[in-house]
Design a binder for these strands. Structure first.
Lengths: 205, 205
DNA sequence: GTCTATATGGCGATAGAC
DNA sequence: GTCTATCGCCATATAGAC
């Protein structure tokens, strides 16, 4: 993400506004909107509080810009999956793994997404749905329809996303349940398990 | 939940402390810990702020008591499922439906759980795991082992819980994805879908 | 056991110098 | 465009009357 801005502004240089947004994004992801103060953002961004208000009218505008930035460009990562010409089963396997990788690679993004799903109103949910998931969801539905034409594609598509995101979300608490093994935290194991569950679910009954 | 206290204290009477806890619980579930002020709790509980501090040393203690109360007794609802003598498949179907019903019947509980999973440290995650899920999880693991002895019971048990909770959690945003039908919000449809996915996943390959 | 009054500090946001 | 200084308010928490 930083690489993009570095390309725009030269070696290593990031504008003050971008620095503010970046630190705000991280703080909002860690603690949620209410638990973050403008003073904390200012300290981490190495500006004064008034400096923030030069770039943003209020705290909410800063938050909206932060999530808008965090959610942008996420769909591109999946391009390699859909571009490849392989069997539907293999494509599904790659998609599930790619979804795991995206969420694991950007924990800030994942947590902002979780907070938004819990706290956003309809308008912001729509932004999240369209800017992050819409394209992937449509392609996923088509894939499901290829694999299992008789099943409810919307239900299955949401189930696939839920399984991946939920598996990662449940990681911390899973440590406190019986039968836990160290290998359950490996992305290969998680992705393989989810893939098997989904492929079996897509078989005709 | 109120019925229990009513039995203890006579017709309709609820102690001030319980009223404070009750209103705090609802507020914390709606907005999260940081977004709730002692003043708001005091107003809804019809006491002064100082009145709260007579019963609780600080805000965190009030929060901990609220979630402890919200999480207590939830396991009892599943007793009817495990007591019944029927096939493993039928038991699993009943458990999934019961889990849906618990989360749907007590949205306050569900939201407190979501916030805890996001924000709690290890100690509080352990409290959540033990007081809410531990018994159910063990029984669920045994059930999975009956249905699919060769599979990883821990992974499948978590998958089942994730599918139910995730399906409900995704409801609001699902409205903004293509292919959404009104029937997808019916608990019967959701439970049937999850049950089918899980039963297929448990079949030997 | 509940109240009014208050202490103390952090909050979001602004004014005005440079 | 960034700063220091400050506003007015609300936050958690306490003191002490009744």
């Amino acid at each position: 993400m930083l690489l993009f801005t570095e390309r725009l502004f030269g070696t290593g240089h990031v504008s003050i506004k971008e620095k503010i947004r970046q630190e705000a994004m991280i703080l909002f992801a860690e603690k949620g909107y209410s638990a973050v103060s403008m003073r904390q953002v200012a300290t981490l961004a190495k500006v004064s509080v008034a400096g923030i208000y030069h770039h943003y009218p209020d705290k909410k505008a800063l938050y909206l810009d932060a999530i808008r930035f965090a959610f942008s460009g996420k769909e591109d990562i999946f391009n390699t999956v859909w571009v490849m010409q392989c069997s539907p089963e293999k494509t599904l396997t790659l998609f599930i793994r790619a979804l795991f990788d995206v969420l694991l690679a950007d924990r800030t993004f994942h947590r902002l997404m979780q907070y938004e799903i819990m706290e956003a109103d309809g308008e912001r949910l729509q932004l999240l749905a369209q800017s992050v998931f819409h394209q992937q969801f449509s392609l996923l539905i088509r894939l499901v329809q290829q694999l299992a034409p008789t099943q409810d594609a919307h239900l299955m598509a949401t189930t696939i996303i839920i399984l991946v995101e939920g598996t990662l979300r449940a990681q911390p608490i899973n440590r406190y349940f019986p039968g836990r093994k160290a290998e359950h935290d490996q992305v290969e194991v998680m992705a393989e398990h989810v893939t098997q569950v989904v492929l079996k679910a897509l078989q005709a009954h």
